[in-house]
Design a protein around this nucleic acid. Structure first.
Lengths: 108, 108
DNA sequence: GCATATAATCTATCTTGTCGAAGAAATCAT
DNA sequence: ATGATTTCTTCGACAAGATAGATTATATGC
């Protein structure tokens, strides 16, 4: 049972933080694609969200029953305290290893 | 065939850059453990090095036949140009997603 | 009620991460 | 010269994460 996050898990958690109340499957996918150029399929994002939820790193609630245009209800996600801690650890690991290396790796 | 790197692959590549000529299985493992606190078994590191090599992201050569104290010859590794490019992409993805968020995530 | 739009799940497979245990190659001690 | 010791690497097996095509669910509008 690893407490470490995979790379996509990190990106998804960061996307959730960025998106706040607007965070659900579709917006997470587009946020990642727009910011990184990485094209992850929707299903890929959903499986990752599911995994994060079963680990307790995110929590979800089904959206209100009043969508503007039609379609299935949104499932909103937010990062839990445990999720923030795990993300912090992962990012710290990377930057610890990158620290002190010249550009384009670590700054300083 | 993904061009993306896993999280451990990133850490290993960074360790190789840090270690330069002293980069081989054992030193990579200890470097990661000392700097991040993450305890990866030697076999884990070797497996990752092997995968990175088969992807062309690192190159290896067997060490000189004159060890100081005894023991098997070292297999030295260095990051290839393709490896540097892949690492750059991965780190850029993370920081793109983290950018603009307050501490303790992105700086700025 | 059927077309259309939107969002989430299912199923299946490939890639990465993990490591106990075993193996290889060198020195040392007698 | 050989068996113990040290150092380092590989094997083999499985768990966890990433990937996505196809399918299903649920809403609106007509």
């Amino acid at each position: 049972m690893s407490r470490n996050l995979g790379e996509l898990e990190q990106l998804v958690l960061l996307a959730l933080i960025r998106l706040g109340d607007e965070a659900y499957g579709v917006t997470v996918q587009t946020e990642i694609e727009e910011r990184t150029g990485r094209a992850a399929a929707f299903a890929t994002v959903y499986t990752t969200l599911g995994r994060l939820e079963s680990k307790g790193f995110v929590a979800s609630h089904t959206g209100s029953p009043t969508p503007e245009r039609g379609g299935r209800a949104k499932k909103h996600f937010k990062v839990t305290a445990a999720g923030r801690a795990a993300l912090g650890r992962s990012l710290r690991d990377i930057s610890s290893m990158a620290h002190g290396l010249g550009a384009p790796w670590g700054r300083t």
